[in-house]
Simulated assay, not measured.
Amino acid sequence: MDRWEYQTLKYKTGGWLGGKVDEQEFQNELNRFGYEGWELVSCFDTSVSQGASRDVIVVFKRKLQVG
């Protein structure tokens, strides 16, 4: 039976009212987790109003190495 561990990343988009995602910085963060063996499972924003997002929540998983 496979066993998994999970990791959550909260990526800040800006100030209190939200902001824009720096695409290159966000991609660098995703790649960093990928290089460590994490697989992206889900990604969603925390909307505040009128299309603005305060945070982007990213969920990763990777198989536990049972030894």
Rank of each mutant, 00 (worst) to 15 (best):
S42E: 15
D22N: 13
E5S: 05
L30G: 00
F33T: 12
Q50N: 15
Q7I: 06
N31T: 11
S53E: 03
Y6S: 03
V56W: 11
F44S: 11
I57R: 03
V56A: 01
V59N: 12
G67K: 14
Q27A: 12
Q24E: 11
F60D: 03
E23W: 00
K20W: 14
V21Q: 07
T13R: 04
G34P: 05
F26Q: 01
V66M: 06
D22R: 04
A52F: 06
E36I: 11
E36C: 08
I57V: 11
A52V: 12
I57T: 11
S53I: 11
T13Q: 00
V48F: 08
L9F: 02
V59Q: 14
C43L: 08
K12R: 15
W38G: 09
V58L: 08
K12P: 04
V58Y: 04
D22V: 06
I57E: 06
T46C: 11
F60N: 01
G15Q: 08
D45W: 10
F26D: 07
V41I: 09
N31I: 13
W16H: 11
W38H: 02
S49W: 07
K20R: 00
E29D: 09
N31A: 00
E5R: 03
Q50F: 07
E36M: 13
G51N: 00
G15Y: 06
R54T: 10
K61Q: 11
G34N: 00
K20P: 08
N28K: 14
R3I: 14
G18S: 06
E36L: 15
K12Q: 09
L30V: 04
L9W: 01
E5L: 01
V56K: 08
M1I: 05
F33R: 13
L30M: 10
D22Q: 10
E5M: 10
E36S: 13
S42M: 12
G51V: 02
Q27L: 07
Q7S: 13
F33S: 06
G51I: 06
L17M: 11
G51W: 09
G37T: 09
Q24S: 10
L64M: 07
G67W: 14
G14L: 00
E23I: 09
C43N: 10
W38V: 13
L30A: 02
R54V: 12
F33V: 01
G51K: 12
V21P: 00
S47D: 15
Y6L: 08
I57M: 04
R62G: 06
